[in-house]
C-alpha cells in the first residue's frame, strides 16, 4: 500500500482535518507503514465468514416510548463556543 499526497488530502477533507504540507507528508509515510501491517489480512481466506460487528451476539434492547421532560438547554449551552437566542451559532450554512 502506498499513499499519494492527494490520497491523504482527500481523506483529510472527508475527515475535516486541516493538514499542512509537512503534516501531509508525515501522515503519508506513517499510513504507508501502518497499512503494510494491515495488509497482512489479505492473506486470509474469509469466504463465507459472517462479519463480527459486535463483541457479543445480543438482541437490541428496546425502550418504552416514554418522555422524560427535562430542559437542559442552559446547562448544555453554557459549554458551547457560540450561542444566540437559544441556537448554536455557526458560520453560514450553504444549502
Amino acid at each position: 500500500m502506498s499513499f499519494s499526497s492527494d490520497d491523504i488530502a482527500r481523506l483529510a477533507r472527508l475527515a475535516r482535518i486541516r493538514l499542512d504540507a509537512v503534516e501531509t507528508n508525515d501522515v503519508r509515510e506513517k499510513l504507508d507503514a501502518i497499512f503494510s501491517l494491515i495488509d497482512a489480512l489479505q492473506a486470509i481466506d474469509t469466504a463465507g465468514v459472517a462479519p463480527m460487528a459486535h463483541a457479543q451476539d445480543v438482541m437490541l434492547p428496546l425502550r418504552d416510548d416514554i418522555v422524560t421532560r427535562e430542559d437542559c438547554r442552559a446547562r448544555f449551552q453554557a459549554q458551547a463556543p457560540e450561542v444566540a437566542d437559544g441556537l448554536y451559532i455557526v458560520p453560514r450554512v450553504v444549502e
Binding site: Y88, P91, R92
Partner: peptide
C-alpha cells in the same frame, strides 16, 4: 466539530474551514 462544545478554532472564513 466545534459546534456544541469543546474547542473551536479562533479564525476561519467559512463552515468548512471552521471544521478543519
Amino acid at each position: 466539530d466545534g459546534v456544541r462544545y469543546g474547542h473551536r478554532a479562533a479564525e476561519y472564513d467559512d463552515l468548512f474551514e471552521m471544521y478543519c
